[in-house]
């Protein structure tokens, strides 16, 4: 195990980070729409959103990636495999984040909303000034957990040929016959990234004033 091999793994880590961050961001936007739909009390929105969430939470990410990877060309969308991978990961994390957000919105104390209305805030103001900030603060720890899950799950995009930490480690292991040091280094890189994310999460939570409302 030379420094050169480790540098190659570190370079591949940039790809892991990029794919994960983009997927989490896109997933977050979709999750807001999904959670708004599930909270709308209108079955034309609630049913499809529930179905979407249940499907993407109920099927292994590997199967989702294979499905999207084969489905997109069939319906006439030819995109590079990296786009298919990001689409797959975004839809999956969107389903999980939507569930977290819904939980957050439902745990905003009723009294706070009533108080906002009594003080003369419009329903729109109540939503954006009271419910959204509190729900986001309540779901922040879950969002950090989800980010760690996605960073780990991104190892699966190696299956569709994208060069990130896992794929790089696989290629290096088969060309050098050093699987133990190479996979152990890959594991270490994931562990360090995830520990940093967890630390950032704890720090941010404290500066947000914790989960207290």
């Amino acid at each position: 195990m030379t420094i050169k091999l480790f540098t190659l793994l570190l370079q591949a880590a940039i790809s892991t980070l990029g794919i994960s961050l983009i997927s989490i961001a896109i997933g977050f936007v979709i999750a807001i729409i999904l959670s708004a739909a599930t909270l709308s009390h209108k079955s034309i929105y609630v049913v499809p959103a529930r179905l979407f969430i249940s499907f993407f939470r109920g099927v292994p990410l590997l199967v989702q990636l294979l499905l999207i990877y084969t489905l997109l060309p069939v319906i006439g969308i030819n995109v590079p495999s990296i786009v298919a991978a990001i689409v797959g990961m975004s839809l999956c994390t969107a389903a999980y984040q939507a569930e977290n957000l819904r939980g957050g919105f439902e745990s905003v104390p009723r009294g706070l909303i009533e108080a906002a209305e009594v003080t003369g805030l419009s329903p729109r103001q109540t939503f954006f000034r009271i419910r959204v900030p509190i729900a986001l603060r309540l779901t922040f720890p879950a969002l950090i957990n989800e980010a760690i899950m996605i960073l780990k799950s991104s190892s699966l995009v190696s299956v569709v040929g994208i060069i990130e930490i896992t794929k790089m480690a696989q290629d290096l292991a088969s060309s050098t016959y050093l699987p133990i040091p190479i996979f152990a280094s890959a594991a270490l890189i994931y562990l360090v990234i995830n520990s940093i994310v967890a630390l950032i999460g704890r720090f941010a939570e404290r500066s947000l004033g914790g989960a207290s409302t």
């Binding site: 760690i148 780990k152 799950s153 991104s154 190892s155 699966l156 190696s158 896992t166 480690a169 696989q170 292991a173 699987p179 133990i180 996979f183 152990a184 890959a186 594991a187 994931y190 562990l191 995830n194 520990s195």
Partner: peptide, 15 residues
């Protein structure tokens, strides 16, 4: 808990 399952599997299978 901090490393991907796939990496653990590779470590055991190939290592």
């Amino acid at each position: 808990r901090g490393t991907p399952f796939l990496i653990q599997v590779f470590l055991l299978y190939y290592g």
